[in-house]
Design a binder for these strands. Structure first.
Length: 1108
RNA sequence: GGGCCACUAGCUCAGUCGGUUAGAGCGCAGUCCUGAUAAGACUGAGGUCCCAAGUUCGAUUCUUGGGUGGCCCA
């Protein structure tokens, strides 16, 4: 090798990707590449991204790398497509999980204990804990090559954030979209706290025994028709002309929680179910219940007296077992409810709006009051049996009371699954609590309409999971009786209960009493500080205090489009013009809203995806995002969800340190469609690394090695490109068809990858790149590699140089273009290759460059088809060699190919490649049946629609027909008569079948046959031997540790006559291939590297000595 | 109980707008090739395309029902 400066940094085929990535990170750091993007794209249109904020109170797992990678890939792509991404990060800092973590640390068992401990200190610890792992999150994000603006990340507990959250709340309040209502939540009477659904899920116990009671609800003594009961129905029940002509019937209802009977307000039936009036004679009694359940509930001795539709029973009043205080007259009647089934019970459902979620919904629908008969400790209050006792004890007394009053029909014990408190194992009660609601149902139609305009990837989420959720929308219970969260900004009068909503700290200062006003200036808006602020009631002059609740953490993240900005602020807008924004309304009008892109995992459907849509529809009358990728969950190797408690969380650091971030990213992008749940395993990351990254790397290493040897410099050949040097657009199609082919495929690849990424599918994009790289390495380079070895200025002078230059130009274009195509996906590998290959005029980093544009004039479909045919022929030819047990090294005289006409036209183009690939001297095209016989098959897609049921008959007729004759007729373009049918060439497929005596391979589905002539002449044999010796010498060179470009003297000792003859006959070939200055038939000097060899059973000694 | 998704080779996944002999990679067995390669080629073993019914000349593909698994909700 000469001493001259090499154009490219040498690239070893041995590569350590993690190390390489760390070097790239250092470069990015040193050059501040991330911020350079903003400079380069200063005048570009914005691409707005919203980050769904994670909580940093735990270590990031592999699933976080997944979502961050998907965030990053789109943003990098859009950057290269000429946008300036707005990609501020964010942190979710409030909420129950944070509180639970601290409770656990402090050993606190209940809300009561938290309050004794002190809310101030408790919240201080919560705030401290949420950034406990922030460092790890930062470094994970950096190391994974994810570019998010973490320095300016929004934080949901920041004062400006909370203030905007209040602003949003006030806006909803002013629009009358906030109200107070009851919400039934799972409640632990011992801890005196509600549990989140996640906590409830922790505590289900199977086979829990509970009472099962069937209770009579007699129809009113004087039923009215006021609520829709019809006279006719009442008459059929026995109430005629204002009097009961027979015993009053009872509705029969079932419950497993007798204590809730104290709060019964209604009975629910299904309008769609059939009900029967049953009658027994001993003793005489009449009851109503669902027809389907009558027998199993009542047993023997009952007869059907009448039948009703559920709808006919609506509005009939009844006497409840217990009538508490404060109940209005319109309660205690039969209502319609969709949740009534005939699965169990009686088909008539006892409804207590205070103690059941569905009950509460129904009560709300009919404006029933919510009245508690049990306190938060689960103790019966009021004049009921079991008063002062815990509900589970009270149950016994209530059952006894019902029995004594003749209302109990029967009772027993049922075993079912019931939730218990995960902390203290107390059975949970469903309990209605006052809660603040956001009236999302007011904009339900708008949300549904807005959703239609959002592009969901995958598409089925739009009308499926998410659309379904929207269509079933209920108002959002947004308040939580907790501590660490955005305080609900409502103050209530101690005396008259009038309420007022506050939209920010200025307003708070205005409204605060003179005594508390001074606190507002530097106020932490969190509890307990904000609770010190008092106001004066304008209605009655009494003191007003803030309500105790804080907001659901989903409210925080849903308000993020507005709250992430601390007003006022100024940013560099599209076209480089600064835009200043003072409040959320200006924001909504600007191009910072809505987001063009968001992505999170599928569990956010009812979480962030929903809270974003709900709040922005309410506030801005439109969705706040336009495109969303929904990611599937990552499971462990066994297909189980990763969770801290199971201890099966894969630490991303292990993978990134072992195999690198690019390998991990590539795996995450390409291994499965992004929306599917996927099993994660480090082995599969390794596989994708070997299959893709290593193959690309080796191709790249090959190029650099030879380009340096030959001093190839792309800038010296600028005229070869019509666009940027090194791009996929050449000034003319290459003369060599291998080059022309790969350039055609490259441009097709560019077009397809662009389309895939535009469609938010890195998965498809990556898979295409992978396929191209495979073909580039295993066909283009393998087929063409000799072109790079030819000595410069060799025997054939200029033409060799010319071909070689084209080879370099082509391979260079491919590699350089790929470095840009993969830049969004594997940013490190891409930048490494890019920086080494790039022309001097290029930007410093691939991430500052533009995405490639396809040149459709260079796409040649026919050539693509021809090469694919060559690949298939080569494959069949090798199969034939394998069958004939003839090494590829042994040249053969001819290959015979038969193809269908539509493919035969390409054979000319690819002859040379096939000959070289198969190591044969000549290719013959045949269409006679010398090497094969024929078989006919119906072309079903053509025949089916035309002949329908007759297809079977045609198939049979074709089997009996003279295949050879028909094939010949079809070849001439004639129609043929088969049985009763006249068919043309589009309706019959002619296959070839192997015939004995030839070494052939068949691809019958393509009608393709490849045969080999295996007769060996002496010449062919000698050539085979020569090749064999080349192979051996090459191995010896390798073993001797010689460099590729070293010249040698070779020694062959002990050659047989045949070997010696071959050496003479192919002397120049041998010397050229092995870079031998001389080949001597004598023993090697003692100093030489030598080894024993065995060729065709003859032992000889090979030696190599480096020429001086 | 409801909604959505998935189910194709030992594993991870393609694919089939309904068509004849359903593919790839990895893994396994064997043969070969190689002066870029941690590679590559070929052969082989390995599939009731989850099950059933329906529509159809024809269903792995469409429809319905069921099963299993995942997520969400109750």
């Amino acid at each position: 090798m000469s001493e001259q400066q090499q154009r490219f940094e040498p690239v070893s085929s041995r590569v350590n990707f993690p190390k390489l990535e760390e070097r790239v990170l250092e470069q990015w750091q040193a050059e501040d590449t991330f911020h350079k993007v903003d400079e380069v794209r200063a005048k570009a249109p914005l691409f707005v991204f919203y980050e769904g904020p994670p909580t940093a109170n735990g270590s990031p797992g592999i699933h976080h790398v997944l979502s961050r990678s998907f965030k990053d890939v789109v943003l990098r792509y859009k950057t290269m497509q000429g946008f300036r991404p707005l990609r501020r990060g964010g942190w979710d800092t409030h909420g129950l999980p944070v509180e639970l973590e601290i409770e656990k640390e402090l050993g606190l068992q209940s809300k009561h204990e938290i309050e004794s401990f002190g809310i101030e200190e408790f919240n201080r610890r919560c705030r401290e804990s949420v950034f406990r792992y922030v460092q790890e999150w930062q470094s994970m994000t950096d190391r994974a090559g994810v570019w998010l603006d973490m320095d300016n990340a929004y934080v949901t507990y920041h004062k400006s954030y909370v203030e905007t959250a209040w602003w949003v709340f006030k806006r909803l309040w002013d629009d009358n979209h906030v109200y107070e209502g009851y919400k039934v939540t799972p409640h632990c009477p011992r801890c005196v706290t509600s549990l989140s659904s996640h906590e409830v899920a922790l505590g289900y116990k199977d086979n829990t025994p509970d009472p099962s009671v069937f209770v009579r609800f007699p129809i009113n003594q004087q039923p009215s028709t006021e609520h829709g009961a019809s006279i006719a129905v009442l008459e059929r029940l026995g109430y005629v002309n204002g009097t009961w002509v027979t015993t009053r019937p009872s509705f029969m209802a079932w419950t497993t929680t007798p204590w809730t009977l104290t709060a019964n307000m209604a009975l629910a039936v299904s309008p769609a179910v059939r009900y029967v009036l049953m009658q027994s004679l001993e003793p005489y009694e009449r009851v109503l219940l669902a027809e389907e359940l009558a027998k199993s509930v009542l047993g023997e001795g009952w007869t059907v007296h009448d039948t009703f539709d559920g709808a006919e029973l609506l509005g009939i009043g009844y006497e409840p077992p217990y009538r508490g205080e404060g109940l209005t007259e319109h309660t205690h009647r039969v209502l319609a409810a969709t949740y009534v089934t005939t699965e169990d019970g009686t088909g008539i459902v006892h409804t207590a709006p205070a103690y059941g979620a569905e009950d509460a919904e129904l009560g709300k629908e009919h404006n029933f009051p919510t009245i508690h008969t049990v306190d938060l400790r689960g103790v019966i209050q009021g004049d009921f049996p079991g008063e002062g006792k815990f509900v589970k004890q009270a149950d016994k007394e209530i059952i006894a009371d019902l029995k004594q009053r003749g209302l109990l029909f029967k009772d027993g014990i049922i075993k079912h699954t019931y939730p218990f408190c995960w902390r203290c194992s107390t059975p949970l009660l469903y309990y209605a609590k006052a809660s603040w609601y956001i009236q999302t149902t007011a904009v339900k139609t708008k949300m549904v309409a807005g959703n239609r305009g959002i592009n969901w990837y995958p598409d089925h989420i739009k009308e499926g999971r998410f659309g379904e959720w929207l269509r079933n929308n209920v108002d959002w219970a947004v308040s939580r009786e907790r501590y660490w969260g955005t305080p609900i900004p409502i103050w209530r009068c101690d005396a008259c209960d009038s309420v007022r909503c506050v939209g920010g700290s200025d307003e708070l200062a205005e409204l605060a009493t003179p005594e508390t006003k001074h606190l507002v200036a530097n106020l932490d808006l969190h509890r307990p500080f904000v609770d010190q602020i008092e106001m004066t009631c304008t209605d009655c002059g009494s003191a007003m205090h803030r309500v105790p609740e804080v907001a659901d953490a989903w409210y925080d993240s849903g308000a993020m489009p507005f709250a992430q900005w601390a007003y006022p602020f100024t940013v560099n807008g599209s076209n480089g013009k600064p835009i200043s924004i003072n409040n959320p309304d200006e924001l909504i009008a600007s191009d910072l809203f809505p987001a063009q892109y968001i992505t999170e995992a599928v569990d956010q459907t009812r979480g962030w995806f929903y809270s974003l849509l709900a709040l922005s529809t309410l506030i801005a009358d439109q969705p706040s995002y336009q495109n969303v990728i929904v990611l599937g969950l990552i499971l462990d190797g066994k297909g189980e969800k990763m969770s801290k408690s199971k201890g099966n969380v894969v630490n991303p650091w292990e993978v990134m340190n072992e195999q690198g971030a690019d390998a991990l990213r590539w795996y995450l992008f390409t291994s499965a469609p992004s929306s599917l749940p996927r099993r994660f395993s480090a082995e599969l990351v390794g596989e994708s690394l070997r299959r893709f990254m290593l193959t690309l790397w080796n191709t790249y290493s090959f190029f650099v090695t030879y380009a340096n040897i030959d001093g190839f410099d792309p800038e010296g050949h600028a005229a070869y490109w019509s666009g940027d040097i090194g791009g996929s657009s050449l000034s003319s199609a290459p003369p060599n068809e291998l080059d022309r082919w790969v350039i055609s495929e490259l441009n097709e690849l560019v077009a397809n990858v662009t389309a895939d990424l535009d469609a938010y599918s890195p998965t498809d994009a990556g898979r295409r790149v992978e396929e191209f790289v495979d073909q580039l390495s295993n066909w283009y380079v393998r087929r063409g590699r000799r072109r790079y070895w030819r000595p410069l200025g060799g025997d054939d002078g200029n033409s060799s140089d010319y071909d070689k230059t084209w080879a370099y130009v082509t391979l260079y274009s491919c590699l350089f273009t790929i470095s840009k195509l993969i830049a969004p996906m594997t940013p490190f590998l891409a930048d490494t290759i890019y920086r080494n290959l790039a022309p001097k005029s290029s930007p410093d980093s691939v991430h500052l460059d533009d995405f490639p544009q396809p040149d459709s004039s260079l796409i040649d479909d026919d050539l693509d088809k021809a090469i694919r045919l060559a690949m298939r022929i080569a494959s069949l030819g090798r199969a034939a060699r394998s069958k004939g047990k003839i090494k590829v090294r042994q040249p053969l005289a001819r290959v015979i190919v038969r193809a269908r006409p539509e493919e035969a036209q390409y054979l000319n183009t690819i002859t040379d490649q096939v000959l070289e690939e198969l190591n044969v001297k000549a290719l013959e095209v045949t269409d006679d049946d010398a090497f094969a016989s024929f078989k006919l098959r119906p072309n079903l897609p053509a025949l089916g629609p035309k002949y329908g049921k007759q297809v079977g008959a045609i198939r049979a007729a074709l089997q009996d027909a003279d295949a050879g004759a028909i094939a010949a007729q079809l070849r001439d373009g004639n129609c043929v008569t088969v049985g009763e049918f006249t068919l043309d060439q589009t309706e019959i497929l002619v296959d070839v079948e192997e015939r004995e005596g030839f070494v052939v391979s068949i691809d019958s589905s393509g009608g393709l046959m490849v045969g080999l002539d295996i007769d060996l002449t002496l010449e062919l044999e000698a050539e085979g031997i020569a090749r064999e010796i080349v192979h051996r010498i090459q191995n010896a060179r390798k073993s001797a540790g010689l460099e590729i470009e070293d010249h040698i003297t070779a020694y062959v000792d002990g050659a047989s006559d045949a070997v010696a003859a071959a050496l003479v006959a192919h002397d120049s070939y041998l010397r050229q291939e092995t870079l031998s200055d001389d080949i001597r038939l004598e023993s090697a000097p003692v100093s030489a590297y030598s080894e024993e060899q065995d060729i065709e059973g003859v032992k000889l000694t090979l030696g190599v000595v480096k020429s001086s």
